[in-house]
Amino acid sequence: DSTVGSPGDCKPCPCPGGSACAVVPKTKEVVCTSCPTGTTGKRCELCDDGFFGDPLGQNGAVRACRVCKCSDNIDPNAVGNCDRETGECLKCIYNTDGFFCDRCKEGFYGKPLATNPNDKCKSCSCSPYGTRDRQTSCAQVTGQCTCLPHVTNRDCSACELGFFNLQSGTGCERCNCNPIGSTN
């Protein structure tokens, strides 16, 4: 407030490099208005959208703003792709998930870090008849669903040799063929 008439009326802006600021009248809050490129926030303590870091080192060491690191599993046309401070990925695509979009989301399996999107994460598609508790999730890499007794295949869609009745939903039953009258 320059109208009071004392020497301490005008204070330097608390902004990086003494850059410009403004005072919000109601709250008397000081807001930096010319933050260095890539930074924003009241004190230029935040990164722009699409970047993450801790440019003022408010939570430990100074981390310059870097572009979201999400394993190429975000879309550059999206907004809010990662947390501006921690870098946690918030908009994983190609059925990926995780802090860095570096694993397949629940119900999917494969190679989340593959370059071709078609090779990334595929649906588990576990057979509802052959899978324990009708689970829809499977092993991250192999895609193996958790099969009921004597059920086989990645997706638990078939009975083991010598077993039948997948449809029972409780596992496959032994064929009970007469060993003398059967060919195998």
Partner: peptide, 12 residues
């Protein structure tokens, strides 16, 4: 000019 400062927000 700036009409509104929303320093902590990402306005879309």
């Amino acid at each position: 000019k700036t009409v509104l400062h929303l320093p902590e927000k990402v306005v879309i």
